[in-house]
Nucleic acid binder design. Structure first.
Lengths: 343, 343
DNA sequence: ATGAAAGCGCTAACAT
DNA sequence: ATGTTAGCGCTTTCAT
């Protein structure tokens, strides 16, 4: 059935096989324009028989339309971005748009290279994690002439639209909850800040909330590299050895928080009375630990949905004004590792 | 600096701004062909000043070359594929090739649609998870005229190249190790089989190994949906309630295995003496649990590297024969949840 | 309802 | 070292 030439098939091949003009074949294959039922069938059969796969490169060049949305995120391996992706996919699945993912590995220069590469394919929109980018990246986004949505973080100025939560506020709220619960000797455990702006902002909001209550972080421990349980254990041990009278551990993500929690339970600490813990992210993978870690949902799924929705709407109706600002409000999941407020 | 027209910039704009022909501008921007240092500088400056981003669509159409590698995997959310992706990226980063990921969500019809979509962009190669595909998918891959590498699994016939491990053999070896250790009443906990061919093959190899020792699986429990600790706990509880005298639990992945392990320890079972456990995958995220789960490394990183290497080599040298078959051999990580052989 | 011509923005191949 | 010409495989636009 399949003609075996060592040349990719073109519309012309389908046209010849079906005896219908290239133009009409194109119309059938795109399901666009008036075509008689009869010719439609002839074309479809010929295309299937030949095993024709349209060349979107030529199509895109001719139509000046590319149904791709560039999604640029730091990493896929830490459980937060896959959930954002799901939200994006859910919404784009209802449209002709398709997400294409690029990874920056938290490096601005890599982010810039990925952005350049993706823009060179002329996507319909860009969804980009974070608000901190190289000046060149910002310039590219400003000049791209397509919807740009910066996601996750809202503490700063987007190039165009933004969807996210205030990480400063998130840190603040957790700090306040901890103060409310009567903890006094609080430690922070997290990623090395320069690498992760959102963690830094949470830390800033957090220390600010403590300061309001006259408290300071009594110890801190930073790491870089993948976050697993073991990292959480090690860091927790380090803090507890160094500062035995600490009474609260605030982790910059749930994964290290969970590792820390397991360590504390093993060491026989009474959680949350002698020692409280909290993480960040609401990783539901972790439900099933001996105790539920207190955490805060970062609204990742909803962020993905809203960002995709903005790109979809603006693609469908390019006259829309742009500059959307959607600030979601995360809530604390109290879990079992923060004692109830003591007044 | 940046000219502000509402039309995407073209090579011609850079050509006019620099007073150099389009062709030479193209050569400079691609770093190809002899160009005097002087004109190179003029072109580069003009391009940067304008904020020109090349149009790869036009470039690809003209050159008939697309430096994209289609990677089609079931999902990103279960920790096994991100590691494969890292292996792929590591190798492709040394080449002009770029991975583009598509997700099948374990559905053959979705896989087919994603493949069609990706092939329509005329990638340089395809890396596809698994050996089981719809007939139409196999036909597309056969006719694509580019390197096709099927990964993860080697129990079957690939369209072109394959890189992976034998999951049947992996199940067998774990079964043999369990028998060796003297366990007699073994249960299996895993995904619903039709959804996951590799889990099914492990199960088949596993039961076969038990059968050789005159044993049968005494209970089994299946689930669908995301694998988290909680699923593992629930399934484990179900099995232990139903079959209290079970002495070994074999899980189809480490995530549910870890949930099960936590449950067993909480319930006070003596692990690995009264009750042994094993998982599959070697998720190093999980190091840091109270006990190391016995598991088997699926060589995911190496699979990614080798697959990418095949695509890279064949892209660089299209005359290579193809049909590569790379079968990796996973090893058991004994951990703390399988008692030592008792002869 | 169908077709013919022109051209999308680049690069291969061939001048010079 | 640089320029010219002719497409790449489609879709847009305009005829019929």
């Amino acid at each position: 059935m399949t003609a075996d030439l060592r040349r990719p098939l073109t519309l012309r091949d389908v046209s010849e096989a079906s005896g219908v003009s290239e133009m009409t074949v194109s119309r059938v294959l795109r399901g666009q324009g008036e075509v008689s039922a009869q010719t439609r069938v002839r074309v479809l059969e010929a295309a299937r028989a030949l095993g024709y796969v349209p060349n979107k490169i030529a199509g895109a060049l001719a139509s000046q339309r590319v149904n791709l949305v560039a999604v640029i995120i730091p990493s896929m391996s830490n459980m937060v971005f896959p959930e954002v992706m799901m939200g994006i996919s859910e919404v784009l699945d209802e449209t002709p748009l398709q997400p294409v993912v690029g990874l920056s590995h938290y490096k601005p220069e890599r982010e810039e290279a990925v952005l350049y590469e993706m823009l060179s394919w002329r996507p319909s929109g860009v969804i980009m994690a974070g608000l901190e980018h190289s000046e060149a990246s910002r310039a590219m986004m400003r000049n791209a002439g397509i919807p740009i949505v910066e996601i996750m973080d809202t503490d700063g100025e987007p190039v165009d639209a933004m969807v996210g939560i205030s990480h400063r506020r998130a840190g603040q709220e957790m700090g306040e909850a901890i103060v409310q619960s009567g903890y006094k000797r609080v430690a922070f455990l997290g990623t090395k800040m320069p690498l992760d702006h959102r963690a830094r902002k949470r830390f800033e909001g957090f220390t600010q909330a403590l300061a309001k209550a006259g408290l300071e972080v009594v110890d801190q421990e930073f790491y870089s590299g993948g976050s697993g349980f073991e990292k959480g254990r090690e860091m927790t041990k380090a803090v507890l050895d160094r500062t035995p009278d600490v009474d609260f551990l605030y982790y910059s993500n749930d994964m290290i928080g969970a590792g820390g929690l397991l360590y504390c339970l093993e060491m026989g600490f009474s959680v949350p009375n002698r020692l409280g813990l909290a993480g960040f992210n609401g990783v539901n993978l972790l439900r099933g630990l001996p105790k539920h870690l207190t955490t805060m949902d970062a609204c990742r799924h909803e962020i993905g949905r809203q960002a995709a929705q903005i790109v979809a709407s603006r693609t469908e109706n390019p006259k829309l004004p742009g500059g959307e600002r959607i600030i979601l409000t995360p809530a604390i999941t109290r879990g079992d590792t923060l004692r109830v407020a003591d007044q």
